[in-house]
Amino acid sequence: MKVVSRASIVAFLLVLALLVWVGSSIYRAGYTTGVGVPREQPIPFSHEHHVSGLGISCEYCHVSVTEASFAGIPPTYTCMTCHSQIWNTSPMLAAVRTSAATGKPLTWIRVHDLPDFTYFNHSIHVNKGVGCETCHGPVDRMPLTWRVNTLFMSWCLECHRAPEKFIRPREEVFTMNWKAAGTEEGKELVKKYGIAVQQLSDCSICHR
């Protein structure tokens, strides 16, 4: 009897461990985190086309990225600065014209969405030399936008513990396909920009 109950406890623990393992791999899989999965949008907006093809800079559309906590998604008005005149009969852009006519904003599907209990701020990162590419990947080559990083806490901390591995000169933050010269330069930039590495993994920085 004792043997049976012992065996069943062990078996139960094993099953539990298996469940946790399966659960955590599902949690980390691209399917659940959205990493590498292009998001369908109500309008097939292409960064590849507008950024690589036409050379429009990120700030033309994401105007607040260097000054505010959020980068901002462009309002319909921004699309209309060009699409009032070009491709202004294309059915692909019908929703943009309806939105401009009615004043009802477009609804984009979020690609990145941190839990509400975390605090994130774009301007501090961009002004201290963290490039869009470092967190968002090669956006200029995305026909539909997808997520390149999990946004797990461990991902944030990987950089917050050693920013010198990722940081670049401030003038290069919008550059895509940037190559680091080496960690020596990174270390110098950390000093130059006065980044307080020892505080950067304090819980209260991101959970306030």
């Binding site: 901002g72 609804t107 839990p115 209990f117």
Partner: peptide
């Protein structure tokens, strides 16, 4: 419930 709190962050509907 703490992931999606009843508040209005920017860019939400």
């Amino acid at each position: 419930d703490m992931y999606d709190q009843p508040k209005n962050p920017p860019l939400t509907s």
